[in-house]
Amino acid sequence: MSRPEIEVRGLHKSFGDNEVLRGIDLEIGQGEVVCVIGPSGSGKSTLLRCVNLLEEPTKGQVFVGGTEVTDPDVDIDAVRRRIGMVFQQFNLFPHLSVTENLALPQRRVLGRDKATAARIAAENLARVGLSEKADAYPASLSGGQQQRVAIARALAMGPEVMLFDEPTSALDPELVGDVLAVMRMLAREGMTMMVVTHEMTFAREVADRVVFMDGGVVVEDGSPERVIGDPQHERTRHFLSRLLDPAMAEVEEEISDQVGKSGP
């Protein structure tokens, strides 16, 4: 493998006294699809947001495409143009039509002329299957459509890396499939992707690697067959069993202890 597309070295991040990331080392190669899974509060979204510096790491380094993102003198806006990001809440610009959502960033940030920006916008809308919504406003779209527009908006900037922060978590269950299909297409086309997700089927089928995080550290890192199919750590097993079959979860031990003590 040549130089990794994303490289994270000794990353720490604290919010006040709360240490969310406690030393993360991670490499993602070119064209690799890595799913990051883990319980809420495990720091997986924070890790993702440190990659394009939406969160400033407390300690450690992040490299994207060989450029150190965490270097205080780096042109962060230039680096971010190479990193597409998709948010849980879509974050489309509500005052702009779908086409303008895709075209305005190209014009303002990349300096493309109006015609070029419109052409690239149309191409990318077609990729996510939403050409007919070109003139619609975000508020009139379903969540799944909004998320696909958000992906197209990121793609229109021509990124080398795509970050996905729980892209399907805010969607109604029947809308998840369309978004995952677009992401699967991207993976097939060879996009380097880092995906924070709870979609185990997607992780199992599409990911080259799955990273399980808990308590601000990487607990397991390996192929989906290994991490999801045959987890080596108790924490991973515990998390997966709760995720795959929530109805079977037992009352947590600490809680059942308290109930026992307070009872007669």
């Binding site: 394009n52 939406l54 806006d77 230039a78 971010r80 143009r81 990193i83 597409g84 990001m85 948010f87 809440q89 974050n91 489309l92 610009f93 305005l104 960033p105 303002r108 940030v109 990349l110 958000a150 908006r153 990121a154 900037m157």
Partner: peptide
């Protein structure tokens, strides 16, 4: 919403450009 500034910044907008356009 805070997400608007984050989305703009993640697309490569400078803080000033994000303020003016978004």
């Amino acid at each position: 919403p805070k997400g608007q500034m984050e989305a703009a910044r993640s697309l490569g907008f400078s803080p000033a450009k994000a303020m003016v356009s978004i």
